[in-house]
Amino acid sequence: MKIITLLNEKGGVGKTTLATHLAAGLSIRGKRVILVDADPQGHATIAFGLNKEPGFYDLIVRNAPFQKVLRPVPAERFNVPDEAKNTQGQLLVVPSNIETRSIAANISDAFTVLKRFNQLRNAIDFVFFDTSPTPSLLHSSIYMATDGIIYPTKCEAWSFDGLRESLTHKDQFSPIRQQYNLNDIKVLGVVPTMYRGRTLEHQDNLRRLQDTFGSLVWKPLPVRTIWTEVASARRTVFSLAPGSSTAEDAWRLVDQLEERIYEQP
């Protein structure tokens, strides 16, 4: 089992979009995947047409069994319509609502999240955490649990501040994780989102990103209006517009994640 977290302390940069599509893509490719909505806004929950409810809160604070909090997503919502029936993997969501905000105050130690998800090590292949842009103590608990982090970022100059903050916070956890014999968190990628390839500003900023982070930078995800339609349809782009160039863009994200997960350290 691998735990992967979508992080950026800047709002609206594409964390939820990436989380839902990476999770869905791996499920379509046969994996058992859990998407944890760790954001009180509950965007990842409603992205799959699920009701907002305190699933994550119950799991962590009330020690609820996984059976009670996991919500299976029907494959029609995320797979290509003709292929949905034959979907090999599964996608499950731990839903969220406003109560997620009070998890941090009720958590007994920084290992709670790690301990809970370690239980699933034999049942599940991937766990994705979609996080809120506001840092909280819950983030520290997720830092102790995660194997890898993906940082989506816009290609605007001011977006890089959030990225810098997030990376500093990650580094602060290295010594703590070492102390507990946990591997260092792997940065799986910095993903330029909502990219306008024709504007000079975006081209410049992409180059700056590549200069700083080198091969960690993924191919940029172009800006497309269909993404807002995807969100309101409570579907993925694979399901809503199969064969579109945007679906292709999304598959490329899944490919890049798989490359990095399976590459030798």
């Binding site: 059976q67 029907p74 239980q119």
Partner: peptide, 20 residues
Amino acid sequence: FGLGELALDIAAADSEFQAI
């Protein structure tokens, strides 16, 4: 959605964990 087997695996994981 082929959930039967997964549901059993998750139930097994749950039974291992008990509230304090």
